[in-house]
């Protein structure tokens, strides 16, 4: 666990309660075959809110955030993202995906493209940005994640932590309104976790709407407005990080927390 993040100061909240919710999940259900992986999941995320989702493996947390940009399809319930309901309408889906950035556990950079090309591809072809402008934008975000000097290299030449920061920069280049993080530090060596979390904290400071699936409790304490605990496909408990961690209401969360703390 990254000690640097167990700091006392919690970020000032950027939640805008006046605006309509950025993301709304209403009684979402999903099955893989006969396995019921999401059970009546309801969740509202306000614009500027930072939500951390935690829970044991297989609890459906990854599936849930992958449903938000329809990498997985839900079978029941409604998901509304940025005012648009997810449906079979391809145009609406493309519009949503333009506004929702995603960072994966396994980075998923495009290995045959340079770092710069990874970052400019979508702005150029999806946002129709001129190449020069896209490259300037990419360099801006690469500077922000502190790797501008690697722009001409290929992903395979970078360390895991650097690759994940490129992945964050790549998502940011689309200027998304919402960022989804699917266990962004789980595939990293311990010494690289901090550099990625620092980048994410920086993003949170700027008021980005974020949903982050992670086991990094220090990160949750520092930046989350709300922590959502999932188990067996259900949202079991949610609340501010301090109250949730210090005063778990359910047996399941208590068990989970004790396991996590023992693990570290």
């Amino acid at each position: 666990m990254s000690a640097a993040l167990d700091t006392e100061t919690h970020l000032r909240s950027a939640v805008r309660t006046d605006a309509p919710p950025a993301i709304l999940l209403d009684k979402v259900n999903k099955w893989y075959g006969a396995m019921h992986v999401l059970r009546d999941v309801s969740l509202q995320v306000a614009t500027g809110e930072r939500v951390v989702v935690c829970g044991p493996s297989g609890s459906g947390k990854s599936t849930m955030i992958r449903c938000i940009n329809r990498l997985e399809q839900h079978q029941e319930g409604r998901i509304v993202v940025d005012g648009t309901e997810l449906s079979d309408d391809v145009r609406a889906l493309d519009a949503i995906r333009r506004e929702v950035g995603m960072v994966f556990q396994s980075f998923n950079l495009f290995p045959h493209l340079t770092i710069l090309e990874n970052c400019t591809l979508a702005p150029i072809w999806v946002r129709r940005m001129p190449k020069r402008e896209a490259e300037e934008l990419a360099m801006h975000y690469l500077t922000r994640v502190k790797i501008p000097d690697q722009a001409r290299k290929y992903p395979g030449q970078l360390s895991g932590g650097q690759q994940q920061r490129v992945a964050i920069a790549r998502a940011l280049c689309m200027k998304p309104k919402i960022m989804l993080f699917d266990e962004p530090t789980s595939a990293l060596d311990p010494e690289m976790i901090k550099e990625v979390l620092d980048t994410m904290v920086g993003l949170a400071e700027d008021g980005m709407t974020m949903i982050c699936v992670t086991h990094e409790m220090g990160f949750a304490r520092q930046v989350a407005d709300r922590v959502v605990f999932m188990d067996r496909g259900e949202v079991v408990e949610q609340g501010a990080p301090e109250s949730l961690f210090n005063d778990p209401k359910t047996e399941r969360l208590r068990t989970f927390l004790s396991q996590i703390l023992r693990g570290h």
């Binding site: 940009n69 990498l71 493309d94 995906r97 333009r98 929702v100 950035g101 995603m102 994966f104 396994s106 998923n108 950079l109 495009f110 591809l121 979508a122 072809w125 999806v126 790549r170 998502a171 689309m174």
Partner: peptide
């Protein structure tokens, strides 16, 4: 993951 990353970028 390559397909998913491309999808997630809205390509």
């Amino acid at each position: 993951g390559q397909y998913e990353a491309a999808d997630a970028l809205g390509l």
